[in-house]
Amino acid sequence: MDDLLTVSGKKSKKTAKQWIQSYDGQKAITSIVFLLIPVALLILFTFVPAANMVVYSFQKRSQLGTDIEWVGLDNYKTIFSDSSYLMTFKNSIYYLIGSFIQQALALLVASVLCSRLRCKNFFKGVLFFPYLMNGVAVSLIFLNFFKNGDGVVSPQGTLNSILSVFGVEPYTWLGAETANFCLVFVSLWRYIGFDILMYIGAIQSINTDVYEAAELDGANSWQRFRYIVFPSIKSIIALQCILAVNGAISVFETPYIITGGKNGTTTFVIKTIETAFTYDKIGLASAMAMVLLSITIVVTIIQKTVFKEET
């Protein structure tokens, strides 16, 4: 880099025309031309709306942007004083606990898949497949899975059908008592494939010599996991857990499609969307989005500082 600078410094007396024809000039122009469209799109569709959102969060405004009124911090005051807004974070706890279980399961499956096993790649494919599926499709599948059909208007759901083979009475899974657990299960089912793949990658990066040495010393598989695998992938596990926090506070499509946020399954994002588009309070909804954004930023900063030394 320094070389380039001095070279171009020396030749600064070149005319613009010559510079353009030079290698450096060509490189710069090509890069700019290639970057122009993506950067323009990024600015137009990400940064401008985001900046607008910051402004909107201090206003009282409707979707059409008529009757704009500056209200200062009132929107933020509403969010933090009216419990109905922050209460929706309560449901994130379900997803948070769910994602810790998900990490543990993924780690278990990953270590099994890293041992000597037939059709390894087949299992990897099967486990990763749900992650590739569209969230709407997944939600519709599970809507039919958890259904307690009456046999009149709708047929019995998959889960109840299977359980009835064992003589279990049909149960309304998406009722108020179990709806949140079902939804957490869906998101676990969907995202676990990705975690498994991450752990497999991490485990495979461990030098095989270490295993061989351990085996010669007579370590069993639990000891190998506890003293070799686990310390080597500790940082990945911690990273995944922090990412899980971000995932848990921004859950949206699964509950939105399966239960529509009913039976106490509303999340903060659903509440934000309803505030914006059902009650036409764009200002308040922007403030809610800002709250979510700041939480995400805080979590990300924690993640960066914690893992700074290790990476």
Binding site: F146, N148, S154
Partner: peptide, 9 residues
């Protein structure tokens, strides 16, 4: 009413 109002069609 129907058995499972949560999954009506």
């Amino acid at each position: 009413i129907e058995v499972d109002p949560n999954t009506t069609d």
